[in-house]
Design a binder for these strands. Structure first.
Length: 647
RNA sequence: GCGGGCGUGGCGAAACCGGUAGACGCAACGGACUUAAAAUCCGUCGGGCUUAUGCCCUUGGGGGUUCAAGUCCCCCCGCCCGCACCA
């Protein structure tokens, strides 16, 4: 998975950089050298992974994890080491604890030969900061150029030798407590001296491979994805366990395996595991009593390909390749940032795997990704004497913003952080009363109106009243035209322009998911229509309105469309056309600045040239007054924008 | 600690490639209509000075580049997210 998903993420040019970066960090690809340090006097060795083979001459110790096989072996007849290992295991696992945890080590007394100079011996330590589940569970320490190694070396007085020059500083004695991890020339390293860090890395890897004591390797940090769960809610894994025949797949004719519905959750644990009939089945091979697998698949397994099944649902197979080809990949995926890593990475992997086995003809499931913000709300809680926290729903709380109490009681409670709405913190708001009071259109419009969708939104109902008023204003426009027989034949050029601008602008706003801007444009148009005297232009604008508001106020749009005599449904109408000629003004307002400060504005023909603009600007009363006789040193003219006079 | 992002009126926010900061909305305030209220309509609305024309300040803070900076560069502060002893 990491190999295939780290490739190709650069091609996802319509994905947020943030998400791609999070996935890359999660995959944690790093290139380096796997090498063996031979234990002095024995044939055994310790395998070590490093991304800094260039610093090999700066090595001063080798450290292994507390649960490294060698450490455990030695501990069996060394009680002191045994105690040290116990101590390491007790260390906390929270972020803060790891951050502040002191590096501790135990000198095993063993030593290893340096691969580039077998006469040079390095001590072998067991250290709490070496992780067994990454790389080989063993590292070599180069304290001058790695902060962890330096912390460790200073504590146990191990040698610290500089092997990368820091500017002009080539001293082999490294001073201070801050490791140097930047670029530089290699020094104090025999044949490598003078090379750059990158050159030296390549050099050492080549030498190790030629001499057989190591090889270049790419490591991934990504943990394995354990896809099975001991729970009911998930897809059954079609496997049967037989005491005689072992682990067998459920025969094809018995697929799919479906979950039993007569389960109870009265007892903790997986109900499948204690289901009497579902669990016990004959072995498909020897017919003796056997048992179904009672783990189910992680729900991420389903979410990794649901979009494929969504596009094609034949009865006899997971999906039809041709049908899928017609619909996928998904053009625009919209989801929360909380799925940035797991779901979106697994779905990418699933798709790649299906492509690899020839079932799909594309590698990436989602061409474009948009991560919308989360809806947040302040939390309310109360902490009991035993530290137990009780959360309160905002609806049962009275708060003035600085203090809070439970409605209908004297109970004072605390105001917590503003957090993503969640059932566990009870800071969810039920929108149903709003729907009942204002209708679905007003609530939808309200939610689209102010905040851009990529941003987190702190839920507040202030503003819904205004939305409700606006919905009513639009309805009155429809009603007015529908009731009255319009005889006005005049046109209104300004209103025509505004309408066509709204048509074009709202289309691009909506395409870009800038719904709040489309809302603002609708307000501008409606404000102007309301103020305009009756005219053919005004009627046309009102008759266009249902199509414009249909994506965001669908019910009102349909009512308006019908009231104005439209055929069928407005939702099946095409977006109105706009006249590009009406998008350009023949007059523009330009700014006139003196020394970059606005002093006047002028309304001029759109294509007035630089000389004309300059002349007009210099003739302005306000400019003459501001200049107060001074001679302009320089005049910058940006046609259609501004004139800036430098005095 | 590492990586990424954000910071604009009382509030949610606009501002295209560096070119009139605050569009649009909410709240607030003043007014009209009304016996009254609701609804509706009109107006004001970043801060300061000023009789006014107008002037000064203002996009977290400080510096810089530029004719011109919310926008570009450097430093700092604050908040948010992800990762976290990954060799």
């Amino acid at each position: 998975m990491p190999r295939t998903c780290s490739k190709g993420s650069t091609r996802l040019d319509q994905w947020p950089e943030k998400v791609k970066l999070m996935q890359e960090n999660w995959i944690g690809k790093s290139k380096g050298l796997n090498l063996t340090f031979n234990l002095a006097g024995t044939g055994d060795g310790i395998d070590v992974f490093t991304t800094r083979p260039d610093t090999l001459f700066g090595a001063s110790f080798v450290a292994i994890a507390a649960d490294h096989p060698l450490a455990r072996e030695m501990a069996s007849n060394a009680p002191e080491l045994q105690r040290f290992i116990e101590q390491c295991k007790k260390g906390g696992t929270t972020a803060a604890e790891i951050e502040t945890a002191e590096k501790i080590g135990f000198n095993t007394g063993l030593s290893v030969e340096h691969p580039l100079d077998p006469s040079w011996h390095l001590p072998v330590w067991v250290a709490n900061f070496v992780l067994m589940d990454y790389g080989t569970g063993a590292v070599f320490g180069c304290p001058a150029h790695d902060q962890r190694d330096l912390d460790f070396a200073r504590k146990y007085n191990l040698p610290v030798t500089r092997v990368v020059a820091e500017g002009d500083n080539e001293d082999s004695d490294f001073e201070g407590d801050v490791a140097y991890t930047g670029p530089g020339r290699i020094v104090n390293s025999h044949w490598m001296n003078g090379l750059s860090v990158d050159e030296a890395k390549a050099d050492v890897i080549a030498k190790a491979e030629a001499e057989g004591w190591g090889e270049g390797q790419t490591q991934y940090r990504l943990r394995d994805w354990g896809v099975s769960r001991q729970r009911y809610w998930g897809t059954p894994i079609p496997i049967i366990h037989c005491d005689f025949c072992g682990v067998l797949p459920v025969p094809r004719s018995q697929l799919p395996v479906t979950l039993p519905e007569d389960v109870s959750f009265d007892v903790p644990g997986n109900p499948l595991d204690r289901h009497p009939t579902w669990k016990n089945v004959p072995c498909p091979n020897c017919k003796e009593p056997a048992r179904r697998e009672t783990d189910t698949l992680d729900t991420f397994a389903d979410s990794s390909w649901y979009f494929i099944r969504f596009a094609s649902q034949p009865d006899d197979k997971p999906f039809d390749a041709d049908e899928v080809k017609a619909w996928l990949p998904v053009g625009q995926y919209i989801g929360g940032i909380e799925h940035a890593i797991l779901h979106l990475l697994y779905a990418r992997f699933w798709t790649r795997a299906l492509q690899k086995v020839g079932k799909l003809d594309f590698a990436e499931p989602f061409a474009a990704l948009f991560t919308q913000g989360m809806v947040t709300h302040v939390t309310y809680f109360d902490k009991a004497g035993d530290g137990k926290i009780t959360w309160y729903n905002p609806e049962e709380v009275m708060s003035d913003g600085t203090s809070a109490q439970v409605k209908g009681s004297e109970k004072r409670i605390q105001i917590g952080r503003i957090e993503k709405m969640s059932k566990s913190k009870k800071n969810v708001v039920d929108p149903d009363p709003m729907f009942d009071q204002y209708g679905a259109d007003a609530v939808r419009w309200f939610m689209l109106s102010d905040s851009p969708p990529e941003r987190d939104l702190e839920w507040s109902e202030s503003g819904i009243e205004g939305t409700w008023r606006f919905v009513n204003r639009i309805w009155r426009l429809f009603d007015g035209v529908a009731q009255g027989v319009s005889t006005a034949l005049d046109t209104n050029g300004a209103l025509d322009k505004l309408l066509h601008r709204a048509i074009a602008g709202m289309a691009s706003d909506i395409e870009a998911l800038h719904f709040n801007k489309a809302v603002a444009r609708t307000h501008e148009l409606v404000n102007a229509i309301e103020k305009a005297a009756p005219s053919a232009s005004r009627d046309a604008a009102i008759r266009t309105l249902p199509r414009l508001i249909s994506p965001m106020l669908p019910h009102l749009a349909e009512e308006g469309w019908a009231a104005l005599g439209g055929e069928g449904l407005v939702s099946s109408q095409p977006w109105p056309d706009h006249d590009p000629a009406l998008l350009v003004d023949d007059e523009v307002t330009i700014a006139v600045q003196v020394n970059g400060k606005l002093r006047d504005t002028l309304t001029v023909p759109k294509d007035l040239d630089k000389a004309g603009l300059e002349a007009l600007a210099l003739a302005s009363d306000k400019i003459i007054r501001t200049l107060d006789g001074a001679t302009p040193k320089k005049v910058i003219v940006v046609p259609g924008r501004l004139v800036n006079i430098v005095a």
